[in-house]
Amino acid sequence: MKVLIVEDDFDTADFIKRGLEQNGDVAHHVGTAQQGMILATSEEFDVIIFDRLLPNMDGIDAVRILRGSNVATPIIMLTALSETVDRVSGLDAGADDYLVKPFDFSELYARLKALTRRQPLKQEALSLSIGDLVLERTARKVSRRGQALDLNPKEYQILEYLMMNPGQLVTKTMLLEKVWGFNFDPKTSLVQTHVSRLRNKVDKPFETELIKTIRGSGYILSDHD
């Protein structure tokens, strides 16, 4: 793996870097969010480790900027903040995983390997459409009836996955695995909150509802009743 470490605590960074190199991986370390964003947008990495509390910029803001710049590299956030709201805010910004300090290197490494093994969403079609809803993959743009919809990165990923499975039941567990990379339920309203926001943008301004909730099961995207 080629790993970018964005961490201002040099002891922690050295601990991670040595562990990676002992496993034959390549590790690059920078100490500020700004340096991390420059490298993340100019070089190819298999995964990025981003500390939450960085000088001059919250790691969450940096991750949000990267996702807004269409950087799709898997990101795991490190933090001393362990409250559920802190974990959700990191994931909401676009991080793929979240690990609380202190941690064992073996756990971090297992999570890194899991992120790099994750298969990207299928890219066969350059665009997807359901009724008057169109998703353009190359430009990462979504429109309905020709009207552009402003989606955040997670909303876009949820919609893309739903549009890849038109008329099929997509469960909460499937979305947690495909969009967030979770193989467990974090016991939060993460999925419901994002789908609700997505529905407000995709359905609420229009007469026809496309995202349908199947109570107790999940969601179906369809232009049929």
Rank of each mutant, 00 (worst) to 15 (best):
Q34I: 05
N56V: 06
N200D: 15
G59Q: 03
N23C: 04
L78K: 04
I49R: 04
L175D: 05
R87A: 11
R67I: 08
R18N: 11
I16V: 15
N200S: 14
V47E: 07
L159P: 07
Y219Q: 09
D132M: 12
T116D: 11
K141T: 15
D8Q: 03
T213S: 14
A13I: 02
V202A: 08
A33M: 08
D96V: 03
E124C: 01
T84K: 15
E124S: 12
K101Q: 13
D203L: 09
I49G: 00
P74M: 01
A62E: 04
K154A: 08
G181V: 09
V202H: 09
L66Y: 07
L99S: 04
V63N: 01
G216V: 04
M37I: 13
T171Y: 03
P102A: 09
G36I: 05
H194L: 11
F103E: 06
Q168N: 13
E177T: 12
K201D: 08
Y161R: 01
A93T: 10
V195W: 03
P205R: 06
L53N: 12
L221T: 07
L126F: 04
D132L: 09
E7V: 00
R52T: 03
K154S: 10
L81D: 07
V63Q: 00
I38S: 06
N56S: 13
I158G: 04
S106D: 13
M174Y: 01
F103K: 07
A139K: 15
I75T: 05
F105M: 11
Q147R: 14
G167M: 11
D223C: 06
Q168V: 12
Q168Y: 02
N152K: 13
G90A: 07
S42G: 02
Y98L: 04
L151H: 08
K187R: 14
V179E: 00
L126G: 15
S82P: 02
Y98R: 10
L91P: 09
I158R: 02
F184G: 11
N70A: 12
T138Q: 13
Y161C: 05
T193Q: 12
D132Y: 03
G36A: 11
S143L: 00
S89K: 12
G94P: 11
G181D: 09
S82F: 00
L108E: 08
A95L: 03
D104V: 02
A95R: 03
